[in-house]
Computed example of a mutant assay.
Amino acid sequence: MKALIIGVSGQDGSYLADFLLKKGYEVFGTSRDAQGSVFQGLSFLGIKNDVHLLSMDPEDFRSVLVAIKKSKPDEIYFLAGQSSVGLSFEQPAETIQSFTIGILNVLEAVKMEGRGIKVYHAGSSEAFGDTDGEAAKETTPFKPRSPYALAKASSTWLVDNYREAYDLFACTGILFNHESPLRPARFVTQKIIQTAKRISDGSKEKLILGRLDVSRDWGWAPEYVEAMWLMMQQENPDDYIIATGKTQSLEEFVSKAFEVLGLDWKNHVAQSADLMRPTDLSVSKADPSKAKKHLGWEAKKGIQEVIEGMM
């Protein structure tokens, strides 16, 4: 089996490459500049030399088509795009374009190839917006509240449309927050972990955060890539929520992170209005029962194991 991972340099792309290699796949991975990219995640996992790296611009149809013809994949995993919710408010056009044009080009290329290539698309829980404390299901309507969420909602609708209109095997994993040591520093969980470690080592700095009352469902990224693969092994394509089903506040995450290091978070954390987004979700809650029932998948690690794993 051959797999093409579009966006292999990110957290999920790196863990997915590792997972597929262990399954015996020949793995191809793309980056806009394969020669100049560092591929820290692949190096961290010790697999950089095992992945065939290709340069590809997801927003350039010809570039996408060439990469598919070179790799001749059985499965394509689309994980590319501007992945920060916060940054999407500063770069809305780039964010929306990176997801919608990217997946559209992949779907069009697969349709043209006409040989049954399976497509996985990375959706996001952010597309649901605020569900007023109710656990989101696959049938919950999208109400995006950020340019990032809007982009993910639009790209998910594109996948659903192509699946229905052209009978493609195309599915979306609607992933809730999932973390690992490969999370970039701009993500709040990595910021918390790294700042707490520096403070534990003697730094006098404060951890500066925005809202602490927001709640999220945090899982362990290496587990989530298995769910992506399982979706592609089903007889029929469908969309699935991937989450732990447990929601905790950011304050709880901070508290537990400092507690692991024997510190009281209240002595080391300050809030800043500058870090509060124009719109934000108060509570993100998931019902992952469909994935358990149809894929046989459920999260094993909760917030405590996630924090310890990141540490």
Rank of each mutant, 00 (worst) to 15 (best):
S124R: 04
D33L: 05
K292C: 02
M311E: 13
G116E: 10
L87K: 12
Y166A: 08
H294D: 14
R183D: 12
G116L: 07
T244F: 01
G102F: 05
E179D: 15
S154I: 04
I68T: 10
N161H: 13
S83T: 11
F61T: 04
A67I: 12
Q35H: 07
A299W: 05
A80L: 06
V64F: 09
I193T: 06
K290E: 01
L261H: 12
E226K: 03
R216Y: 14
I68Y: 11
I68V: 15
D201I: 02
C171Y: 00
D60L: 02
R277Y: 13
I307F: 06
A165P: 00
P73L: 07
K111S: 11
S180D: 05
N161A: 14
L45D: 05
S98C: 04
V8M: 09
I174C: 00
D287W: 04
V85H: 10
M232Y: 01
S255G: 12
D160E: 15
F89I: 01
E305A: 14
D167A: 12
G296M: 02
S124W: 03
G123N: 14
K22G: 02
A93L: 12
E164A: 11
S289P: 01
V188N: 14
V66P: 00
D213E: 15
T244Y: 01
K22Y: 01
V283M: 14
N177W: 13
T30W: 06
